[in-house]
Design a protein around this nucleic acid. Structure first.
Lengths: 194, 194
DNA sequence: GTCTATACAACGATAGAC
DNA sequence: GTCTATCGTTGTATAGAC
């Protein structure tokens, strides 16, 4: 009996794992989700999960289908220190939205607004993979609150400029937007919140 | 011939008008939409539109199903002048989201993200009824850009706090949020954008 | 009998044709 | 510079609902 080795072609174990992961992560959160549980739901061996996605975090990133991988881009943005970080974050955020296909982001937002489970998944992902790293770079009090404030301005910028397309913000030069918004982000990161 | 007078029961002229208005406003914008055209689409007399909704703007507000009527709340917020306006706007915005049912707002956002026509309708409404009034109260250069920047921070606050529910922002005391965000809005209204 | 939905007609404003 | 078409809006009358 062929219990080990590769299955006949056409098995979609990878997609089954991703589907099970999305459901579990949205329902129980990152910590409440186990690789073994996902593997069981998908009807595969836990080792196969690691074969496809490397780590639990890698599976998380893949399940989100997030257009950029924060673990690869954020360190470079954070490395130079808090000074000028607001500007670097805004400029990078804009460059991601300006370049290429916006539909993955729109799908994320649409899901978050429509289903609480999708919102939970996005919340968990952003908190852990994005805001957690940003908060770790903050030297002031309440780093998590500061990071979420940064997030609020950035997601609002995306909504106003790319989704609702409010003019003249939607057509403004990227550098104009950076000049206007970066001080806000910088203040959230390192200024007074009073 | 009974051409005038009330129709037999069951006629839903009011809803027909609203439906035609949403379609026309989303497709052609406020100025490109005529009351007469809406009336024709709905198969009613133009005067009936005014009977139900008073003015074209009233019809616009009704078609949007916007949870608050900007023409009744904004003047009081804007009257005391630009000083402290950021704080008043943020506090009012929070009070509207905190109190009562959020589903009308969520429906607006969901529509805007899902259908371009809904986004156009929301854009037109917010620009004309909300940001237009705010911009008129601004004494600095680029009042429209400033108003849209205010809008970006407010819609981002709603997304982060009420939709994605990023912690600790989602659970923060309203006054903490006001203290953190109001200076941003105030700077967009009256500060330097450089 | 009163209230409300509905239609007709017309007014003042505005913008484009010629 | 008229003329005309169209717009938002209003006044008034009527027919059906309650």
């Amino acid at each position: 009996m062929a219990r080990t080795g590769r299955r006949p072609a056409g098995s979609s174990s990878r997609e089954a794992i991703l589907s099970a992961a999305r459901q579990a992560l949205g329902r129980y959160g990152y910590d409440g989700t186990t690789v073994r549980g996902i593997a069981a739901d998908a009807g595969v061996d836990p080792a196969l999960v690691h074969h496809f996605f490397g780590t639990k975090q890698g599976l998380f990133v893949a399940a989100m289908d997030f257009p950029v991988d924060p673990s690869t881009v954020l360190p470079a943005l954070l490395a130079p220190g808090v000074e000028g970080l607001g500007e670097r974050l805004v400029r990078f955020f804009l460059s991601v939205w300006e370049a290429g296909d916006r539909s993955p982001f729109l799908a994320l937002i649409r899901g978050a607004v429509s289903h609480e489970e999708s919102a939970a998944l996005l919340r968990e992902f952003v908190t852990r993979e994005v805001l957690g790293r940003v908060a770790a770079a903050v030297n002031e009090s309440q780093p998590q609150l500061r990071a979420t404030l940064v997030g609020s301005q950035l997601v609002g910028l995306a909504m106003a400029r790319y989704v609702i397309k409010l003019e003249p913000l939607a057509s403004a030069d990227p550098e104009t937007v950076v000049a206007a918004v970066a001080p806000t982000v910088q203040r959230y990161l390192a200024g007074s919140l009073a």
